[in-house]
Amino acid sequence: MAEREDIHGCIVHKELHYSVEDHTWVRPNDDGTVTVGMTDIAQGLAGPILHARIKKVGTVRKKGRPIATVESSKWVGPVKLPVDGTIAVVNETVASDPQVINRSPYTKGWLVRIQPDNLDEDLAQMVTGQAAVDAYRERIETEGLTCAHVADFED
């Protein structure tokens, strides 16, 4: 079980790397790829997700560019890639069951696996561990954010 922190009801997994500004996370994998998803805070801000449209495998992206468009009844917006790279795998479950992002933002609700171009450099610009917890605590408390969870929330 990953070490996690509950910040005013918002869950942060300490082993992940975060782009706090864009509410995305990165998990480095043994095969050199990284898995990317939306944070608990992101899913809470969006509310129940109705549609998620992810870019195709093979799409080359610079960090900061969208890899997906996510929409709920009250919000629509991009999910921005926190690293440079190429989409290697898309989580097909998300297309048919977009609320998997609400239920399991850090595990089953991942969006893509990326073959990164400059991972060390990109990870250095993200936060992880206690630094991530501290950064999120500041943002959550400053902005008064809350994380609504669906009944079968897993993380």
Binding site: R65, P66, T69, V76, P78
Partner: peptide
């Protein structure tokens, strides 16, 4: 406006 934001999110 919602549709416009959706289109913008799709770049």
């Amino acid at each position: 406006l919602f549709y416009a934001m959706a289109a913008a999110a799709m770049e």
